[in-house]
Design a protein around this nucleic acid. Structure first.
Lengths: 324, 324
DNA sequence: ATCTCTGCGGACCGTTCCTGTCCGTGGATC
DNA sequence: GATCCACGGACAGGAACGGTCCGCAGAGAT
């Protein structure tokens, strides 16, 4: 074991257990305690503060530094993080949207095979959460996480991508693109990419993409329009077939604590103690169910179809629970 | 920059961007391409497979190996992971329960200060999800994530812990313990620990713990009963004040896809096409709201109070939506 | 088919640095 | 005060490191 490998191992040990006496480390690493001391000094030199304690029960411990040390994770931690990143994708937090996606793509790319299968088993077992939850019919665009990460990885790696696409007029085509960036707009994901065959920039809704094939051809990124611009031009907020409006008997702040930003827009009503929630969706039934599950007094004010649907469901429930 | 630091930097670069030509790496690292090649060989020797491509557009790329390489994450990725791990805590997946907690505690301990504040801001902004969602009154035990991770960290670091505790008979006391392990039982978290003053093992419900103070006194773990045993003895599944039973018009498998395991138990009914969901909770109102939000036809069969509560809520909703 | 780009790795050599050993110091705890 | 334990200087033999130079081989581009 040479110096560099030993330093990596040392970092790993220090992360695995919080507290290590020098000669225990020495034994583990197969060197003398003096060398461990030298290694510790080296790590500090790299900017990873290793704290030391003298006296009885003394030892070394990794402290908080200016930057995060290289994380050495064990299997379960990797799985926990991967599952967590998947969940964050569902939460759709603008600030770390791209980051969680790229971190997940990175992780899945580097993850040992044995973990991949465990991860898949886990994900299959996990109840769907987040915006997609409560939607067994899956008319709301539910994107295969595999599609999402493989595209994210292609963006990152700058490799050419091929896939089947169904456009807004239901026309099917096979596309070959140089992917530029994934953009989330509301509940939907879009890919901004340069379409090689059409020799122009295009945006693609991920839920309309099928049979993705990541080639190993790399490309040099070309100058082009801002991907976010491209998408927002192509997919205006009004593009959802349904916009459900709900009056909620709670302050806007309270409602926002329960409704992810991407799901809907929350505004305070005039009186301040009630608010108006507006949800754009492809699937009216899903939205109605979602509203039902809110821990507030709610009233769907439109569209009439949603109002009727909620009335019917509430009526059924009431009837079922008063009789007998 | 010495060899070890350069290797760490190299790992970082290879993770940051997918594809690197040798001389670009050389320039970044301030060495010749020959040295980069040697470093690559070294990394491979450590078990991190670096793939190489010759010819036009050739270069190096980190591949999938037997174990995950030390992860060098940028700020946003760290935040995404931290948020994700928080979400996993909410999901409560038995397989990675402890791992997500320990990973989060680890991360928060190592995280640079500048990220801590960003993380706190993010978490404050995020809508509550998971089992705790839909519970503004917070009578269901909602545990401060700060408490959870600081205890997890103390377990990991083996440091003595002090906190205020309110026991089942509402008696307040200040405890000094040697924490052994966190155990989740249903929706609740317990700490199994050795109570120093009482000189015996005890279990503590986390939602009854307040004012945690992590001392810097370390302790040597003592032999004791199995923490999980201890907790399951102290907290039988029947310890929830309410057990709501719901007949759901969907197969048990479908229901399980929507109900996290810790939330409730799902059993197939005799006919196979309907199932019975049983939710243990402290807060009847929350459970009723939760059931309302399920995307299935449901009927609460007990207890009567829950049935009545649902009937009332459904009735109100129906009335509000049929008039006008 | 040829050319060019790019990674590959052997050889050499001066220099650096690494590690084990020995040992006195000083802070912490019992 | 005794003990435990991290600290770090000094030293010396040996290992490794990195730059330079070079011919080779695989992959694309022309």
């Amino acid at each position: 074991m040479d110096t560099a490998e030993r330093l990596l191992a040392l970092l790993g040990l220090l992360q695995h257990r919080a507290h290590w006496p020098a000669d225990e480390l020495a034994e583990r690493l197969g060197v003398t305690a003096r060398t461990v001391r030298r290694d510790v000094v080296r790590l500090r030199g790299y900017g990873y503060p290793v704290e030391a304690f003298a006296g009885h029960g003394g030892g070394y411990q990794l402290g908080r530094g200016a930057r995060l040390p290289p994380l050495l994770l064990d299997d379960d931690e990797v799985l926990a993080i991967a599952v967590g990143l998947g969940a964050v994708g569902g939460l759709a937090i603008a600030e770390i949207d791209q980051a969680s996606l790229s971190a997940l793509a990175k992780l899945e790319h580097l993850m040992p095979v044995r973990l991949r299968s465990r991860l898949e088993a886990l994900e299959a077992a996990i109840a769907t959460v987040g915006p997609a939850a409560g939607n067994p019919a899956a008319t709301t665009p539910v994107i295969d996480r595999r599609t999402l990460t493989s595209i994210a990885h292609a963006v990152h790696q700058r490799t050419v991508l091929e896939f089947d696409y169904v456009d807004g007029r239901e026309a099917r085509s096979r596309r070959t693109v140089e992917p530029a960036r994934l953009v989330r707009a509301g509940l939907r994901w879009y890919l901004a990419a340069f379409d090689v065959d059409r020799d122009d920039w295009r945006t693609f809704r991920l839920d309309r993409i099928g049979a993705v094939e990541v080639s190993d051809r790399r490309f040099v990124p070309r100058a082009g329009p801002d991907p976010v611009d491209l998408v927002s031009r192509a997919a205006p907020p009004s593009s959802y077939p349904h916009r459900v409006r709900v009056v909620v008997a709670a302050t806007a702040a309270d409602v926002r604590r329960h409704v992810p930003v991407v799901l809907g827009h929350v505004a305070a009503a005039d009186d301040g103690s009630t608010s108006v929630l507006e949800i754009g969706t492809d699937d009216l039934a899903w939205a109605v169910t979602y509203v039902l599950g809110l821990p507030f007094e709610v009233e769907v004010v439109g569209p009439p179809a949603a109002r009727a649907m909620l009335a019917r469901r509430a009526g059924e429930l009431a009837e079922r629970h008063t009789s007998g």
